[in-house]
């Protein structure tokens, strides 16, 4: 490019303009191809399978039908699944936000000397697979686990608390798994928050709580929205932690998809539920973009 600009600019201007889109396409092409093969095609295929009629035992036919969706929406168990998943999604997201927000705010304000180290510590759980961490929670929360062991040996309780194989266990595990994601998103969205705004608010007569409500919270809203979107999507789509800590007693859309696809081998049903989950994600994304626009 340097060689071109050094010669007569008038003659070269159209040439550089022609070259630019070519370069752009050449650079974007590999990613576009990978995305098409690895994402667009499978999603289209998933959508197609969800309309295929299946015979008992999971045998796929060549007939297309709405039966998979009709049976989903006519089964009251489906609504229980949706309700459970949404409760988990919103509940886990809210608790994770409350846990990660103070961490993120502290990391944003701490002196740069400590920030990098503390930041690495905050996200370090991501270095360990969430499966491993979930097993760790089973050890801690189980009937013979660390928590119950301490409580029982110290005589506070007589019989173990039910901390796993129920919704409580799933919540605990999910929140811990998602805190690093939430903290990362929050920090990424805290760019506009500067100490000087709080000082300005204080000089105008705002006390601590008002400063938080009127200045810090609105300025960190983009981070909150991003973190909530990410955690909501991750908690609804996760099935390993709910399966292990729920002990097969917590029924969610994600676990149902797993059961239908892997155990029942009912791919069309699994695909139909997947499409419904995709629609829920689409709605979450729409809400997110509206929130971000409002606070921009």
């Amino acid at each position: 490019m340097a060689a071109i600009t050094s010669s007569v600019p008038l003659a070269d201007a159209p040439q550089t303009r022609r070259k630019f889109p070519f370069l752009l396409i050449a650079l974007l092409l590999p990613m576009a191809i990978i995305n098409f093969i690895a994402f667009v095609l499978p999603v289209v295929r998933l959508g197609m399978i969800s309309f295929i009629e299946s015979r008992s035992g999971g045998v796929l036919t060549n007939n297309y039908t709405l039966e998979n969706y009709v049976s989903f929406f006519t089964d009251s168990f489906s609504f229980e699944l949706v309700a459970n998943s949404l409760t988990l999604g919103f509940g886990v997201t809210l608790i994770t936000l409350c846990c990660a927000y103070p961490i993120a705010l502290f990391l944003h304000r701490v002196s740069p000397k400590w920030r990098n180290m503390l930041f690495v510590i905050t996200v370090s759980p991501l270095l360990v697979s969430s499966v491993v961490r979930t097993y760790g929670w089973m050890v801690i929360l189980g009937d013979q686990g660390v928590v119950n062991g301490i409580l029982m040996s110290s005589g506070i309780i007589d019989s173990p608390l039910r901390l796993t194989n129920n919704t409580l266990g799933v919540f605990i595990g999910m929140v811990e798994v998602l805190i690093p994601y939430m903290a990362l998103s929050l920090i990424a969205g805290f760019g506009r928050l500067e100490n000087v705004y709080e000082e300005a608010a204080a000089s105008l007569g705002a006390n601590r709580w008002t400063r938080f409500r009127r200045v810090i919270l609105p300025l960190t809203a983009p981070g909150i929205a991003l973190g909530c979107l990410l955690c909501f999507v991750l908690s609804i789509s996760s099935f390993i932690t709910p399966k292990l800590l729920g002990g097969g007693r917590v029924f969610l859309l994600a676990t149902e998809i797993y059961d239908q696809a892997v155990i029942q081998l009912e791919w069309p049903t699994a695909a139909a539920i997947s499409v419904i989950v995709l629609i829920i994600f689409g709605l979450a994304l729409a809400v997110y973009s509206r929130v971000v626009k409002r606070f921009d």
Binding site: R192, V196, A221
Partner: peptide, 15 residues
């Protein structure tokens, strides 16, 4: 304190 303060970079609330 009831003191008006003007900052070097103005510190107007961006939102």
């Amino acid at each position: 304190r009831d003191i008006g303060l003007v900052f070097q970079n103005y510190a107007l609330f961006p939102h």
